[in-house]
Simulated scan of single mutants.
Amino acid sequence: MKPIFICYKRCSTCRDAMKFLDNNNIAYDYRDIMSDNPNANELRKWIGQSEFPIKKFFNTRGVLYREMNLKDKLDDLSDEEAIELLSTDGRLLKRPLLISQEGIFVGYHKELYETLIP
């Protein structure tokens, strides 16, 4: 099964990650986060598989995160409320998000992506 690469093409970090995958001949299924944002069921599954806290999946540098003042509100949300919120808008989700058999990669970290090289 090919990894699912969820990103926003205008994001420079996403472009760097995509370039890494392409340059290393790592096949993936591309998914645009703005037109095909993960739904709550997908997020629930991936968050559970990752063992990361839900907060790690939020794009804390994003404009929408700041506009919604989520820094102050996130601690008061239940896990289910946070997942539902993440599923409402791709701009809230940290990107890129790579779902693979090797694990769930949140953001682009070259040293972690290197583990995908056959």
Results as ranks from 00 to 15, higher is better:
Thr13Gln: 10
Glu42Thr: 06
Leu70His: 12
Lys56Phe: 08
Arg10His: 13
Phe57Cys: 05
Asn41Val: 13
Pro118Arg: 15
Trp46Leu: 09
Phe5Pro: 05
Leu74Lys: 10
Leu43Ile: 06
Glu84Pro: 02
Asn59Gly: 08
Lys110Trp: 07
Ile104Arg: 09
Leu64His: 04
Ile117Ser: 06
Leu43His: 07
Asn23Leu: 10
Leu74Trp: 09
Glu51His: 13
Leu116Gln: 04
Leu77Glu: 01
Asn59Leu: 01
Lys45Val: 12
Gln101Leu: 11
Gly107Val: 01
Trp46Val: 03
Asp76Ala: 14
Ala17Arg: 03
Arg44Phe: 15
Glu51Pro: 09
Asn69Lys: 15
Arg61Asn: 10
Thr115Asn: 11
Leu77Phe: 10
Ser35His: 10
Asn25Asp: 12
Ile83Phe: 13
Leu21Glu: 01
Gly62Lys: 07
Lys110Asn: 07
Thr60Val: 00
Asp76Glu: 12
Thr60Asn: 10
Leu93Val: 03
Asp79Trp: 14
Glu114His: 06
Glu42Pro: 01
Asn69Asp: 14
Glu114Val: 01
Asp75Gly: 15
Ile33Cys: 08
Lys56Met: 08
His109Val: 09
Lys55Gln: 15
Arg31Gly: 04
Arg44Met: 15
Ala17Leu: 04
Lys9Glu: 12
Glu42Met: 12
Tyr30Phe: 08
Tyr30Pro: 04
Phe57Ile: 05
Glu81Cys: 04
Ile47Lys: 11
Ser50Ile: 01
Ser35Asn: 14
Tyr28Val: 09
Phe52Val: 11
Ile4Pro: 00
Ser50Arg: 13
Asn24Thr: 01
Asp75Ala: 15
Arg15Thr: 07
Ala40Trp: 08
Met18Glu: 10
Asp22Phe: 01
Asp29Cys: 11
Ile33Trp: 10
Glu84Cys: 05
Thr13Met: 04
Tyr28Gln: 07
Lys94Gln: 12
